[in-house]
């Protein structure tokens, strides 16, 4: 008894002195603040500040090197009456909607294929990611060559196969130009969908499908009633990310067409760049960029609500 008391006393005597910070962090509320602080600072610096600065610019008449004065909603009225802006809005919506559908369909198809066991599975999975890994500008330049009106390898191939007699003006024809740009976007985006959906597929227990098969469900029925409902939350998150990225796409169009011909491929981002950087009208450029915000906010809110509902069920 005496010995125990002695040992306890010694242990207490050795306990180091706790500083004020340590004592503060023992309180969970302060610990939470401390742990969140780096994230808050990063988000504030790289997301909140540029956003607030963008809002501030959009209500002034600032130009490069000229701070500008408050003009209220004048810039918004101006772009509302801007014909090229209308074209850019339409193009961006079509571009995002069409490419998202194709990326999802092809990505899902690819993910289902890759989810099977076959020889060289690991290599194929890594290989599939290539379009996503290669820097966009680099791969887009390669596509530019393939769409080149004079040297197009696609035209050459179609001509050799006897499918065309005159060359196809991929980037010169206004309708084809937007389609061509969308093809490149789909090519680049499918791997992201495929790999993300594959990850989602692998979390689904094979037993569920096996049980359904024993009950007599055919492949399509198993997909429709077992796989798809379980994959839906992951799919919605992927679509959400993809829509945001596609809506703000810049590099691809900038390299392929510069928004031409005659604005046939002009998107929000390319037009904002043209006005903000090319003409030095920072306020108008910021206004065009901000015009994307309500649309994206709506998409995000609707999708997040839907995801919550799906997850609750």
């Amino acid at each position: 008894m005496t010995f125990t008391s002695f040992a306890t006393r010694r242990a207490y005597a050795r306990r180091p002195q706790r500083g004020p910070i340590t004592r503060l962090l023992e309180d969970e509320r302060w610990l939470a603040v401390a742990l969140l602080l780096p994230t808050i600072v990063l988000l504030g610096l790289f997301i909140a500040y540029p956003f607030i600065k963008g809002v501030e610019l959009s209500v002034t008449d600032a130009k490069v090197g000229v701070p500008g004065r408050f003009v209220g909603l004048q810039n918004f009225r101006q772009i509302w009456n801007d014909g090229i802006f209308h074209v850019a809005v339409w193009n961006t919506c079509v571009y995002t909607a069409v490419t998202t559908v194709f990326k999802l369909a092809l990505g899902l198809w690819l993910a289902l294929l890759l989810n099977n066991n076959f020889r060289g599975k690991a290599f194929t999975r890594a290989f599939i990611l290539l379009p996503f890994i290669i820097p966009t500008v680099l791969s887009t330049l390669a596509w530019k060559w393939m769409f080149d009106p004079t040297f197009s390898v696609i035209n050459w191939m179609l001509f050799r196969l006897g499918l065309i007699s005159t060359r196809i003006n991929w980037l010169g024809d206004p309708n084809l130009a937007l389609i061509s740009v969308m093809i490149v976007n789909v090519w680049r985006g499918v791997p992201f969908y495929a790999i993300s959906l594959l990850a989602g597929l692998q979390t689904i227990s094979p037993e569920l499908n096996e049980a359904a098969a024993i009950d007599g469900a055919r492949a399509w029925q198993r997909f429709r009633h077992v796989t798809w409902p379980l994959l839906l939350p992951v799919t919605l998150v992927i679509v959400l990310f993809s829509v945001i990225q596609t809506f703000a796409d810049f590099q691809l169009v900038y390299v392929l067409t510069g928004g031409g011909p005659a604005n046939a491929t002009q998107l929000f981002a390319t037009y904002a760049y043209q006005i903000g950087i090319g003409t030095g009208l920072l306020s108008e450029g910021a206004t065009i960029s901000l015009a994307v915000f309500p649309v994206l906010l709506l998409v995000v809110v609707v999708q997040l609500l839907y995801i919550r509902r799906v997850e609750t069920y």
Partner: peptide, 21 residues
């Protein structure tokens, strides 16, 4: 004119000329 010109950038005509197109 070469009708592909609607999609040309500043280097396309250089390439087309030098290739004899």
């Amino acid at each position: 004119c070469d009708e592909g010109g609607l999609a040309w950038d500043d280097s396309s005509n250089n390439r087309a000329f030098l290739s004899g197109s």
